[in-house]
Design a binder for these strands. Sequence first.
DNA 1: GTGTCTGCAAAGTCTTTGCACCATA
DNA 2: TATGGTGCAAAGACTTTGCAGACAC
Lengths: 156, 156
Amino acid sequence: MRAKHGLGQPWWHGKFRGCGYRITLGREVILDILAKADTHLSAEDIYIKAHAQYPNIGLTTIYRTLDILANLGLIYKFDFGDGRARYELTKGPKGTHHHHLICTGCNRVIDYTDFIDEEVELLRQTEKGLAKKYNFKIINHLIQFYGLCNKCSVKR
Amino acid sequence: MRAKHGLGQPWWHGKFRGCGYRITLGREVILDILAKADTHLSAEDIYIKAHAQYPNIGLTTIYRTLDILANLGLIYKFDFGDGRARYELTKGPKGTHHHHLICTGCNRVIDYTDFIDEEVELLRQTEKGLAKKYNFKIINHLIQFYGLCNKCSVKR
DNA sequence: GTGTCTGCAAAGTCTTTGCACCATA
DNA sequence: TATGGTGCAAAGACTTTGCAGACAC
């Protein structure tokens, strides 16, 4: 529903062109995959999906495109502790800001979107306070909870 | 000041022995370095420091020891986005729980310890809520703020 | 003495880079 | 047509593993 706008151009074309980047088939495929994904994909995950619909694509293009996207602020890059990075559209299908619950037993990751108003407000204030005290311009934050999911906590 | 207790044994000896691990010179050196460090050290940082006072030590020992320490919950392992892990004693010299402000311009990391009471309380409640809703046993959390430090924000 | 631990070297994994060719604008 | 972009192969960086000798207990 938010995939296109105006003359049928994907929403990100403007941002891309504005930065001097070209729109290529590979990049379209990658963004399409990210837009449809409901989880955090690794570079290889994306490569496999992309390769299915565009067999000529190489892993290199995946990494290079992800790098651009991250710099443009279109995607987030996460580290869940398993040695490979995961990527996620800043404004995903769900479109909502969220945090992660990571099971240290099985590496499962659960998205957590149930923010309470106070949480958002507190975060806003904290950022403001930190910005002032440390003269730091805060752009983003990362919150992750670690623990054991129901299956893994039973095992122990 | 909290380095020793009882009969002059470092505080962690008990925990180590209790888990069947042996106390070795290499491990003592590594823990000593971590205890004295006031920043997040990389494996190589630790290796260099350790090597200075115990030239026989190898990088392998550093990694293996850090792995044990992390599993024992004695250290935290962080990823600040520069491709190498950083380690920090759970209860450092400062002994305080803290979060990090990471400058995406120069990779500088600032410790942030000025918690406001509401923050701690809110976090506690959030954890409780998440634990209940997702049947997740939360053990730990990670909060990092990303942005530009004063030097880097001037540059742009 | 026995089961761990260790250093070294080699292997592994994810990611980045060099280069010649190709495609977008 | 002029820049950028791409795939491939190779290189790079950090971390892990195999193994024989050394050490803690």
